[in-house]
Computed example of a mutant assay.
Amino acid sequence: MSLTVESVTTQEEACRLPSFDSNVAWEIGHIIRANVQKKFTRPVVIYIAHANSSQLLFFATSGPGTLPDNMHWVKRKEAVVLRWGCSTMRMRLSLQTKTKTLQEVYEMSDPSIYAVHGGGFPVKVEGVEGVVGVIVVSGLAQEDDHSVIVDGIQEYLAKNP
């Protein structure tokens, strides 16, 4: 499936959780890690934190070989999700339709702070306004970083309706 702004927005809405706490973060993080290990050989970083405090709730690598650069990507993707309240993939696709960069649209958007590459995803909860957490995957192609998060949340929701 080719991703569009509309399809990613639909994914974000479909991935709303009934609740979110450290146990939910651990379960989703564990699912994502297991799925990455099954499908990919490249090592990734999986990071889940609260939105309001950046309190780390889950952190793991899928295996040996990640680099310090992965955490730079994590923090830059997290910054996009927290600032604009949407996935980094949706922001990227939105900018592509405008044929502009983040820096051109938002003049103060420092590329050392923000990265519009797939793999940052907002955690939203039914009945709660705004973003309550952020999930970031770094290490794969950006479409794969994005899809392993969506697949992980959907798998969690299927087990915990």
Rank of each mutant, 00 (worst) to 15 (best):
T61Q: 15
G127Q: 05
I32R: 06
E6A: 14
V5D: 06
S54C: 14
K124I: 05
V45D: 05
V116L: 03
Y156E: 00
G118R: 04
I32D: 04
E107R: 13
C86K: 15
I113S: 04
G127R: 02
E13H: 15
A51P: 05
P122L: 05
Y47D: 14
V8S: 06
I135V: 10
T41Q: 11
T101I: 07
R90S: 15
V24E: 01
T4Q: 04
M108I: 07
V80E: 13
E6T: 13
V132Y: 07
M1A: 13
A51R: 01
N35P: 07
T9W: 12
G65D: 08
R76Y: 13
R83A: 14
W84S: 13
R83L: 14
H117L: 14
R42D: 10
R33V: 12
R83H: 15
H72L: 12
H50L: 14
K38G: 03
Y47A: 07
Q142V: 05
Q11T: 04
G65P: 09
A51S: 09
S109A: 14
W73T: 12
G152T: 06
Q96I: 07
V81M: 15
Q103Y: 07
S7Y: 08
A115Q: 11
R92G: 13
E126Q: 08
N70Q: 02
T66V: 13
V150K: 08
Y114C: 08
G130C: 01
A51N: 03
L17G: 02
D110L: 04
V36E: 00
D21Y: 04
E155G: 00
T4L: 09
R83S: 15
N35V: 02
S19T: 14
N23C: 09
P161C: 10
T9L: 14
T66Q: 12
E143T: 09
V116P: 07
G119P: 02
D151S: 09
G120P: 01
M89Q: 10
G152D: 04
T41S: 13
H50P: 00
K98S: 12
T88V: 11
H146Y: 04
W84V: 11
S2N: 12
Q103L: 06
Q103P: 01
E13C: 10
E104M: 03
